[in-house]
Amino acid sequence: MDLKLFDPKSVFLSNLIGQKGMLSFSTFNFKAASLNLSPFFIRSYKGASHEAACLSTSSPDGVSLVGKEQYGVETHTYRYDGSSTNFGSSILFREKRVLDAFDDEYGGVVVNPEKLPSDTDVFVSILRSSLSLWRTEGKKGIWLKLPVEKCDLVPIAIREGFQYHHAERGYVMMTYWIPDEPCMLPANASHQVGVGGFVMNDKNEVLVVQEKHCAPELAGLWKLPTGFILESEEIFSGAVREVKEETGIDTEFLEVIAFRHAHNVAFEKSDLFFICMLRPVSSDIKIDDLEVQAAKWMALREFVEQPLIKGDNMFKKIIDMCIARMGKRYCGLSVHKVVSKFDNRLSSLYYNVVDDQRLGCSSHDSCTST
């Protein structure tokens, strides 16, 4: 923080209300130890009266004490060296520069990434001031998002105690936990989500593909179309999209038949894989040359008799459930659109619906809203 001396003649105070040890204004309080002012240049001292109370500035453009490039300055704290309404010969003030940020709902702070300073020396100074202020205010977790164009600020944040949280294509997110207690900030996303589409036509043929890029032991295997869902994509729409991309077949989502949960699958992340039953609405295959070597409609019996399918207990169980569903002896999870009062968000809720009259699966096979 910078300490400076001001001549009181350079300060413009309009309609001052004087009390011993405190000067009160309409929007600012001056106390014996400190006073808070708007971060503008203040000019010309004109004395005091006992009528209106206000603080004025003659700066036409509101220039900040740190210049027009405000670097997200929020407040300035000033101290004066007196305990009465008479300032004396000088005012001692302390300039406190704070990163532009807003409070989150958990007692933490989220820094505005669009108002970060570019100069590394300025950044480290303001970052230290900000952490000091947030510590005195009892803040908890600090979220600092650094865009790729500000990547030179990353080592500075690390030296000041920030830790990596996660990274995306355009930024790195860093965090700082202030309290002297276990960190309660949520961890980075722990799972990747995949989908597979079980598509069978009225000839009891299953839509299968051979992947162009696969492990040697899986070469020649005919398998279900699979892939990862995209950011903000629904499970049911991701399954429909993957089947369309790999085979050119249009489908409708029916149900989630089952899902698998595995750990340490890729880069120490866990994996959720949803098997979805889809109804075909077209039949002409057009493969994706980038991912798929071949695709075809394959007789169900031929599909399940493949050695790798037949010898894999988990996949054999999945196929058994799909066959049972086709025979109406098993009910999967259909999707329903609902809004929760907890967050007022439209969400997809997957659950089992059974028709009590026939103890079979309900006819609600497509995505519905409730």
Rank of each mutant, 00 (worst) to 15 (best):
Y78E: 02
E69T: 13
G238D: 02
A33M: 10
L221D: 13
L230I: 05
V124Y: 00
G194M: 11
E305I: 03
P216W: 00
E255N: 06
V354R: 00
Y351D: 02
E252T: 01
E255P: 00
E74G: 13
V110P: 13
S282L: 09
N86C: 06
V63K: 15
M277T: 01
S232R: 09
K20H: 14
V265F: 15
T175E: 13
P280F: 05
I17H: 10
A258Q: 08
N201M: 00
I319W: 04
S129N: 06
L230S: 10
G161N: 01
S49Y: 10
M174W: 08
A262L: 11
T175H: 14
M326C: 00
I319F: 02
G108R: 00
I249D: 00
C322V: 05
M277I: 03
K150R: 15
G311Y: 05
G62P: 01
H336W: 04
R301Y: 07
E252S: 04
R159A: 14
I178L: 11
A258F: 12
A215I: 11
F93C: 03
E181C: 14
M173A: 15
R159H: 10
E69C: 08
V265M: 04
P8M: 10
A295R: 04
H261D: 04
D119V: 02
F123Y: 06
Q19N: 08
A266C: 07
F228W: 01
P182T: 02
D343K: 03
R43V: 02
C331G: 12
V353G: 04
V354D: 06
K337S: 11
L37D: 10
V195G: 12
T75Y: 09
D271E: 15
E69Q: 13
P216E: 15
F236E: 13
G138A: 11
S59G: 13
G62V: 11
A324W: 06
R260V: 07
C54S: 14
L300F: 10
I318W: 03
D121G: 13
K317V: 01
K269L: 12
P8G: 09
